[in-house]
Amino acid sequence: MWNYEKRLQYPVNITQTNPQIAQVIISQFGGPDGELSASMRYISQRYTMSDKRVQGVLTDIGTEELAHMEMISAIVYQLTKNLSPEEIKASGFDKYYVDHTLALWPQAAGGIPFNACEFQSKGDSITDLFEDMAAEQKARTTYENILRLVKDPEVADPIRFLREREIVHFQRFGESLRLIQDDLNSKNFYAFNPQFDKCPKCK
């Protein structure tokens, strides 16, 4: 069960619209390494994860990713608020606008819609945690790519916060992988899949 908190995890107060940069940042909403993908990945993986502490990490990071999706959405919303048809045309936002007006819709910067194929829930603890660590690094790279294009400090500030959280999450998933491996056969981590095979005495 979830409860909503009526606040952003980190403040977003953008006073200058910029539909061009909004079209880039929207990738972190519905793109391949975006926050929606991140949240769905962790929340899907947690049921079969073979360690309660790691189930906790997946639950709590999956929850935080929803808050990050909300921050990205707030950034895109504020960057495209009250645009005139002329501004929409001049900025190239017309291709998004024709289908969604100024509403939020999960897509990548290139217009590809959000798709569950952007993440995996494999049912193998080592495989899933490596995917999660890679996902955090891919999101960090995307935020760094965004920061090279953003000049407005009101936009860059919350983006920098989100980038830092990717690094913290990578660290926590690394520790989670260690917790899993500590319970496996130290001579062969792949001797059995702790989410599927029954092999408690393999140590």
Partner: peptide, 9 residues
């Protein structure tokens, strides 16, 4: 206890 007790599922 948050992550060391059983999860609801």
């Amino acid at each position: 206890y948050w992550s060391t007790q059983k999860w609801p599922w």
